[in-house]
Computed example of a mutant assay.
Amino acid sequence: MTTSRMPSRPPRRWSGAVMALLLAALVVASFASLPLQFAAFFTAEAVSSVAEFIAGFAPPETGSGFLAKTAVATAETLAMSAVGTLLAVVAGVLLAIPAAGRFGRPLRGAVRAVLNVLRSIPELVWASVLLIAAGLGPFPGALALGAHTAGVLGRLFADALENATPLPEQSLRTNGATPMAAFLYATLPQTLPQMLSYTLYRWENNIRAAAILGVVGAGGLGQMLKYHLSLFQMQKAATVILAMLLLVALVDGASFWLRRILTR
Rank of each mutant, 00 (worst) to 15 (best):
G92Y: 02
G63Y: 12
L86G: 13
T70E: 03
L67S: 02
A91F: 12
A73K: 00
A68P: 03
V83P: 00
T77I: 10
L86D: 05
G63I: 08
A71P: 00
V89M: 13
E61H: 11
V89L: 13
A79N: 08
A79K: 02
A88T: 07
A91I: 14
T70A: 12
A88I: 05
A68F: 10
V89P: 09
M80C: 06
A96S: 10
V72A: 06
L86I: 08
T74D: 06
T62H: 15
M80W: 03
T85Y: 08
A71S: 11
V83N: 03
G63H: 09
L67H: 01
S64T: 08
S81V: 05
L78Q: 09
T74P: 01
L95Y: 01
A68C: 07
A88N: 06
A68K: 13
L67W: 04
L78V: 15
G92T: 06
M80F: 05
T85W: 06
V90N: 11
L95W: 00
A82T: 11
T85L: 13
V90F: 14
G92M: 08
V93K: 04
G63L: 12
V72E: 10
T70C: 08
A96H: 01
L78Y: 11
L95D: 00
A96L: 03
A75Q: 11
E61L: 12
G63S: 15
F66M: 07
L78I: 14
A71L: 15
A91S: 14
A73W: 00
L95R: 00
T85A: 13
P60H: 15
G63P: 05
E61G: 04
A88R: 07
V90W: 13
P60Q: 14
L78M: 14
A68R: 10
G92E: 04
V89A: 09
M80L: 12
A91V: 15
M80E: 06
V72F: 06
T85E: 09
L78A: 15
A73S: 04
M80P: 01
T77K: 10
E76C: 04
L67R: 02
K69W: 04
A96C: 03
